[in-house]
């Protein structure tokens, strides 16, 4: 915890130093110069509103990408025939630039919420699928054999044997997923939504207001750090409990 605090303070110190050297608040304001615009954006309700809109998109895209990606990854990892059929699709989607998918979704579906969430979800599914597929391929066959001989029910095998083995892979996919998804959501909002952090960054980019661009970007980073510390890390610790015993 101490190391983490010192590390963050170091980053803040680096910002101070660069801002002092730049000596131009329109290019890079001092950290304390953001306090007033943050307070103002919170007071007017703008920041909570746009933060909320982005969070809703992140949650939807994350849930869809993790759900569909886990199912696909598991099926591809467990059934080599299906894997052979779907693998070329996976490679295509893995290598499709995020921007292309976003633009195509907006063109085909329209400038709406469905297109935005679909674009983000499609961008992340291949990555989750690849990670979970690796997990499914590395499942311990002896445990499956044991479950089969003892006649364990399929639901019990999934819950008590398969999912715990996939745990580290799901955690890895979730952590990288949440980090990538919110960045793609911002691009989606930047290109085609009328609210959200990405939209606000686009707005203040056009006004060349670096302070407000930073206010919106940093506020969302703060939320994501909170998610990491309050949800992801405790969950990971709980999942790893038996390893440390």
């Amino acid at each position: 915890m101490t190391v983490r605090a010192i590390s963050i303070l170091g980053l803040l110190g680096f910002w101070f130093a660069v801002a002092a050297i730049a000596a131009n608040p329109t290019v890079l304001p001092m950290p304390q110069d953001l306090i007033a615009p943050i307070s103002q954006e919170i007071a007017t309700g703008e920041l909570p509103y746009h933060l909320g809109m982005t969070l809703i998109r992140v949650v939807w895209a994350f849930a869809l990408a993790m759900g569909l990606g886990c199912i696909l990854g598991l099926v591809m990892g467990l059934f080599p025939t299906i894997d052979r059929w779907l693998d070329p699709w996976l490679v295509v989607f893995l290598n499709l630039p995020a921007l292309v998918l976003i633009v195509l979704c907006y063109l085909w579906i329209g400038l709406n919420e469905t297109a935005a969430i679909t674009a983000v979800t499609l961008n992340k599914i291949p990555n989750v699928t690849t990670i979970i597929r690796e997990g499914a391929r590395s499942l311990n066959p002896d445990l499956s054999a044991m479950a089969k001989v003892f006649g364990m029910r399929k639901s019990a095998i999934l819950r008590h044997i398969i999912l715990p083995q996939l745990g580290p892979f799901v955690t890895g996919a979730a952590r990288s997923g949440i980090a990538v998804i919110w960045k793609i959501v911002l691009v989606v909002e930047f290109l085609g939504r009328s609210n959200g952090i990405g939209f606000q960054i686009h707005l203040y980019f056009q006004l060349f207001d670096v302070a407000l661009v930073l206010v919106y970007a940093l506020s969302f980073i703060a939320v994501m750090l909170l998610v990491e510390w309050v949800i992801l890390q405790p969950w990971e610790r709980r999942a790893r409990r038996w390893r440390q015993a």
């Binding site: 044991m146 001989v149 003892f150 006649g151 008590h160 715990p164 038996w242």
Partner: peptide, 17 residues
């Protein structure tokens, strides 16, 4: 029979339970 018990060479336990 349906009711079979098995003991493998390796213990083959669920380490997370």
């Amino acid at each position: 029979p349906e009711n079979i018990g098995i003991v493998f060479q390796e213990p083959t336990l669920l380490p997370w339970r």
